[in-house]
Design a protein around this nucleic acid. Structure first.
Length: 497
RNA sequence: GUCCGGUUCGUCUAGGGGUCUAGGACACCGCCCUUUCACGGCGGCAACACGGGUUCAAAUCCCGUACCGGAUACCA
């Protein structure tokens, strides 16, 4: 039988890092065993689901490169089938009508309220004490036909336990005593999550459910539904959670933008790099390799490499240098400097276009210059944004001067104010504008002024690129060209800013 | 509260009875290279939660404790 897995996000926001990783693991698993990777949008929470979110999630998946098989299923379209399943269970006596009026949850601190209630009920709460559980069929039907609202609850057995073998966590068991008669259908006829998931997974012929560990308790309830429906449950694999530095589950509400995939795309991350980073969060091939292409991941992925312990996604909201996980940033830099140049170029072009720094010539007559420039400057860059930021001076006359660079490399050596234009004069005579001749002129100049090479070149770097850091200055001068080099060396803009 | 799960350097992790004076990566620090910063090379700092067992031998197996997390809804 072919393996069929699904990624089933609920469209209540952008694509979350944790969800992205769940999608990645599903995708890798499917591809590694030649199975199908399906997509299902769980939009049954009408109040919170938005089309905007769906779009954003799809966009995120596309960016990451996870192409799905078959058509996208929208769970809300299947509501009738879910209802029918609940009614069938009711008919068969495996579920019952609960006429208890619906409680109004104060959705402010709903989680806390639930936990508190559970604590308060401690010891006296019997999961089977619903007064309508054993209502006669006639009585139940009578009240229903009189228009009294009811929810449909699953009748969980009095004694016994559910059990399943989790591919990650091993054998999982749960006493029926611990499981309440869960609601399948709300009193307004709206199917609830656990029912909907089971029905859809059956219909989609899902063989393996790979999802977050926070669903572990749901799984027991779902198994009960499978059994009531007379269906074989799929295999399950629960993934460890991704935590924030505080130790809590990474969440949109508390941690904000940092958890959104779009943040990384917009910050100039390469999808391949981020995917690579994500794969290593909670999974390992058991070797010392860090950089994996999608193909390698697919080849090496296995559920047995997934951890049982949660991973911390490290970042410091108060430190701009540490705005997101160090390793993710490093990984992105690593991809930027090691990706085959021709693969990187389109990304850089896109970035320059977005920053209005793109020139048609880069496509034609200056294509080689462009490629060489990118290759030269990429060594120091962390994100694609750096090409339009730190690297701006290579593509435009309109660039900023880094204040610290001016202080450190220019103002500390006032002589440079005269020297740099003088150096420019000497450059005028250079016929063959390339590394060695430039080097000769600079070293002769330094000798003449009895100063260190570094002083002159670092000063030149600031004036030429606005930065304190960058590629080899001689190479940069060559790349910038004779005219621009001379012009900028003579300019006083940096000194005055 | 109850149920479930987890615990190896700051972070991601290797390891699954002897090969562990615990390996790698990021971060940090130092040195080298060098025209600066970086890159690269070399090196350093830094961890088996605790207590009991089992065993000739435990990071690895068992029990307990502590701590952390998740779940507990007519949300998904």
């Amino acid at each position: 039988m072919t393996i069929r897995v699904r990624f089933a996000p609920s469209p209540t926001g952008y694509l979350h890092i944790g969800s992205a990783r769940t999608a990645l693991f599903n995708y890798l698993y499917a591809r590694s065993v030649g199975g199908k990777f399906l997509l299902r949008i769980e939009d049954t929470d009408i109040a919170r689901s938005t089309e905007e979110s769906t779009r954003s999630i799809l966009e995120g998946l596309e960016w990451l490169g996870f192409s799905h098989d078959e058509e996208i299923i929208f769970q809300s379209n299947n509501a009738d089938k879910h209802r029918a399943a609940a009614l069938k269970l009711l008919e068969e006596g495996k579920a019952y009508r609960d006429f208890t009026p619906k409680a109004q949850p104060n959705d402010k601190n709903i989680k806390a309220a639930i936990a508190q209630k559970a604590r308060a009920n401690q010891g006296e709460k019997n999961m089977r004490d619903n007064e309508f559980r054993d209502l006669s069929k006639e009585e139940s039907e009578k009240r229903a036909s009189e228009g009294e609202p009811f929810a449909i609850r699953l009748k969980v057995g009095d004694s016994g336990k559910t059990s399943f073998e989790d591919a990650v966590y091993g054998l999982q068991e749960r006493d029926y005593e611990e499981i309440e008669d869960l609601v399948l259908l709300r009193s307004d006829g709206h199917p609830l999550y656990n029912l909907a998931v089971v029905c859809d997974d059956i219909e989609m012929e899902i063989t393996d459910v790979i999802r977050g560990q926070d669903h572990l308790t749901n799984t027991h309830k779902q198994i009960l539904i499978y059994e009531a429906l007379g269906k074989q449950p799929p295999r399950f694999a629960h993934l460890p959670l991704i935590l924030a530095p505080g130790g809590k589950k990474l969440s949109k509400r508390i941690h904000g933008e940092i958890v959104s995939m779009t943040t990384y795309r917009d910050a100039g991350f390469l999808a391949a790099a981020f995917r690579n980073f994500l794969a290593l969060l909670g999974w390992s091939a058991g070797e010392e390799q860090e950089i994996y292409s999608l193909e390698e991941l697919t080849e090496k992925f296995s559920l047995s490499g997934i951890h049982r312990s949660n991973a911390t996604f490290n970042f410091d909201a108060n430190n701009p240098k540490r705005w997101t996980d160090d390793k993710a940033i490093w990984m992105n830099a690593e991809y930027i400097r090691t990706l085959p140049l021709e693969e990187l170029l389109p990304f850089v072009a896109k970035e320059l276009k977005a920053a209005k720094l793109w020139r048609e010539e880069y496509e034609e007559e200056d294509a080689q210059w462009f490629a060489k420039t990118v290759d030269l400057i990429r060594e120091r860059f962390y994100t694609l944004k750096d090409f339009s930021g730190q690297g701006r001076a290579f593509f435009s006359e309109d660039f900023d001067f880094d204040e610290k660079a001016i202080e450190k490399n220019l103002k500390k050596f006032p002589d440079l104010k005269v020297w740099l234009p003088e150096l420019a004069e000497k450059f005028e005579t250079v016929e063959d504008w390339s590394h060695d001749p430039i080097h000769e002129v600079v070293s002769g100049f330094c000798e003449e002024k009895d100063t260190k090479f570094g002083v002159v070149l670092n000063g030149a770097r600031v004036v030429l690129t606005g930065q304190a850091v960058g590629p080899s200055m001689l190479a940069a001068m060559e790349q910038l060209g004779k005219d621009k080099t001379i012009m900028r060396l003579k300019s006083r803009i940096a000194w005055n800013s």
